[in-house]
Design a protein around this nucleic acid. Structure first.
Length: 672
RNA sequence: GCGCCCGUAGCUCAGCUGGAUAGAGCAUCGGACUUCUAAUCCGAGGGUCGCAGGUUCGACUCCUGCCGGGCGCACCA
């Protein structure tokens, strides 16, 4: 944890600038120089001041260095010939304080935050596209918790949508099932897999005769209205599929606080209420002419530089800048429902859901769901957040922008600002993997064949199901575990294999920056070597083994090591001679310092909402430790003080990497 | 047409609010297991950072314009 030191350094230098030059210091950051030989922290403020002070950076750096008094925790400050201010930490005390847990991560004050993620249509099994969403969302939640930000995790269930209606139509028209028969299937099969196939069959069936779409319309209508057999079958399907999704996510260590059902938004008249607010403010109005005549629409804000069109603008073009909120037949679009939901999340709707306890999750936390029936008085307070992250892929950017706009129009600029679309690119399939799934390759020379990927499509039944992927990974991991640890009991082997599988897949989903389209390739995803989750786990297991052996052979525990550091000769962790790039090898200090950077990295992650930064940091730390591990022995080190310092450094490293892995939802197996 | 995203090594990708020598994994080639378990480590080759301007003491990073690719812009969600 180094943010505390960074702040101390920042304040001391800002103060020195004020005293030395009589000016308010410009905003500047306390950075980490590219190599430890150059120091542990660096400030480039002298460059920034060169122009205003009309002085050489070098001279400014020297003046500042001279004016800065002693900074607690800093051993020395050096002004370099080119104008950098480099700082070297007080190494032994730095490690001692941190390995003893006396320095906590930086936790900025923050109001309640809602993260909505997963939100899979409850009509089929979850696939790898959904996996990216859930992995990003869950990691965001964990990062918030690391910073002690109160966070509520919501999973939106679209139980009244077209996709659910389609599966109902499938059971009725294609399979000719009654409600009881559907329940029978749900009780005795992989229901989410059954629906996966059925859904794609229904899609084909519609294509066979477009007039069949009228059946979908009727089913959708019944579903929304409720109180009929269609709605009853819908409720059954939704409930079973949601439970299947939750089970899949639980395998990945992903849990939620609240399931928000769209049906409750309708039944509790959230929309009617929101509609009144929107109408009263003039944010939506009834279009009286053009092709949108009879619809309630919202004007879409163009970019700030958008020129207002000429007065005689083509009315058709004018219509294209309006978004339909309520159709001419009186049915609200999903945009309307989303606006109502977003208002509720901020506590701006003036209404609340009712709640029921849905169950207890694998992590022991209760899961709640909204309901239209009587509320459970023991339900906690949901909603009323000051910041909201909606984790949705970039294709829905346009609609998310509308949510912010609605908030702004209604006089809630602060909420609009804190209504954040956590956007990411989709997951597609490599041609090789699509072929393995039985997908017929597109005709040679066609547009589809030229694309470097194949789009996942639930509608076509084309995609890798998360559970299938986890099964393959787990099986492969089990083989590797048995090879290396033949003495493990079957039960333990299963646990370790599943932990490895989860690590592989979660790391894979996080290592790319979110703006990058992932072309999913099975062979690549199955790798356990190189930059992968299992590599990271192995790097912690190795460190754990050192402590097991230390305890076994010498009766020395981690606690003993940590307790007895004071007064030991500390040359092992101190700099050896003048630092130069030549002797800048990976040594104990390099590992300790890198391990300490976790809280700084987390701040960067929150600023950029870029988890690849966290993934790469964790990988780099593991890599550094592996190098250290090969270069320096702990068990066989004869010099006792040196041995203790190394052990202490490794203790801190493994605690920090374990925390970093936890942020990514990755557990550390007992053996590998 | 408009908006957003992407373009960095053979392939897949990092590169933090501008900062010190452009990095990693995979693949290729060559080394290291009686050792704290080799799911590891060490070494080698491999780059006009899409192109052209601009801002700056300093640009892979910021701005403008092009080129190439992806995704959006429905009375679907």
């Amino acid at each position: 944890m180094i943010v505390d030191v960074q702040r101390r350094v920042h304040d001391a230098i800002a103060d020195a600038i004020g005293r030395q030059f009589g000016i308010a210091p410009p905003p500047f950051a306390v950075e980490v120089p590219p190599s430890r030989a150059m120091g542990d922290l660096a400030v480039t403020v002298a460059f920034q001041l060169a122009r205003t002070l009309r002085k050489a950076p070098r001279a400014i750096a020297q003046d500042v260095a001279a004016a800065v008094g002693r900074i607690p925790g800093i051993a020395r400050l050096v002004a370099t010939p080119n104008g950098y201010l480099n700082l070297y930490l007080e190494r032994p005390s730095f490690l001692i304080e941190r390995v003893r847990g006396q320095v906590q991560p930086h936790t900025p004050a923050a109001g309640k935050t809602i993260v909505e993620h997963t939100a899979i249509n409850p009509n089929k099994a979850a696939h790898i596209g959904h996996l990216r969403n859930a992995a990003l969302g869950d990691t965001l939640v964990r990062v918030m918790q690391f910073r002690r930000t109160p966070v509520e995790t919501q999973n939106y269930i679209d139980d009244t949508g077209v996709q659910v209606a389609d599966v109902i139509v499938g059971f009725r028209e294609l399979e000719r099932r009654t409600l009881d028969e559907v329940r029978q299937i749900a009780d005795t099969t992989r229901f989410d897999y059954h629906c996966w196939d059925l859904y794609s069959h229904v899609t084909e069936w519609y294509e066979g005769d477009r007039s069949r779409l009228a059946i979908r319309e009727a089913a959708l209508h019944d579903l929304e209205r409720g109180g009929n057999e269609t709605a009853e079958m819908g409720a059954l399907i939704v409930d079973r599929i949601v439970r299947a999704h939750l089970a899949t996510m639980a395998r990945l260590n992903i849990a939620y606080d609240l399931l928000t059902y769209e049906g409750d938004i309708l039944r509790l008249h959230f929309w009617t209420h929101a509609f009144d607010i929107l109408k009263a403010s003039g944010a939506v109005f009834r279009q009286t002419r053009g092709k949108l005549e009879g619809c309630w629409v919202m004007r879409i804000e163009e970019g700030a530089d958008a020129e207002p069109g000429p007065a005689d603008l083509d009315p058709v073009e004018e219509d294209s800048r309006e978004k339909v909120i309520v159709r001419s037949n009186g049915v609200v679009t999903y945009v309307g429902k989303d606006i109502a939901n977003q208002f509720w999340k901020f506590g701006l709707l003036g209404r609340d859901f009712r709640y029921r306890r849905f169950g207890t999750q694998a992590n022991g936390r209760p899961l709640w769901a909204t309901t239209s029936e009587d509320t459970d008085p023991s339900a906690p307070a949901f909603g009323r957040a000051s910041r909201i992250y909606n984790v949705i892929d970039s294709r829905q950017m346009y609609l998310q922008a509308l949510l912010s706009q609605a908030l702004r129009t209604l006089g809630h600029p602060h909420e609009a600002e804190n209504s954040i679309h956590f956007s990411y690119e989709m997951v597609a399939l490599s041609h090789a993997t699509a072929r393995e799934l039985g997908y017929q390759p597109a005709a040679e020379g066609s547009d589809a064949a030229k694309k470097p990927f194949v789009e996942v499509s639930g509608r076509k039944g084309l995609g890798v199901k998360i559970d299938d992927l986890l099964d393959v990974l787990t099986q492969k991991a089990a083989v590797e575990v048995s090879k290396r640890n033949p003495e493990l009991l079957p039960e333990e082997r299963r646990l370790v294999a599943s932990q490895i599988a989860v690590a592989a897949i979660r790391y894979f989903m996080l290592k790319f920056s979110r703006g990058k389209l992932i072309v999913f390739d099975m062979e690549e995803a199955l790798s356990f070597e190189g930059e992968t989750g299992p590599y990271l786990q192995y790097a912690v297991v190795r460190a754990n083994n050192i402590f097991h052996k230390l305890n076994e052979r010498e009766g020395l525990s981690e606690a003993d090591v940590i307790r007895t550091l004071d007064g030991l000769a500390a040359d092992e962790i101190l700099a050896r001679g003048e630092p130069t790039p030549a002797n800048d090898a990976i040594d104990l200090w390099a590992v300790v310092f890198e391990a300490a950077r976790l809280d700084d990295v987390v701040e960067q992650v929150v600023r950029s909402l870029e988890f690849s930064v966290l993934a790469k940091y964790a990988f780099g730390l593991a890599q550094m430790f592996n190098t250290f591990y090969h270069r320096y022995s702990i068990l066989n080190e004869e010099q006792p003080d040196r041995k203790r310092w190394r052990a202490a450094g490794v203790a801190y490293y493994r605690a920090q990497l374990t925390r970093a892995l936890d942020l990514m939802g990755i557990e550390v197996p007992t053996r590998m």
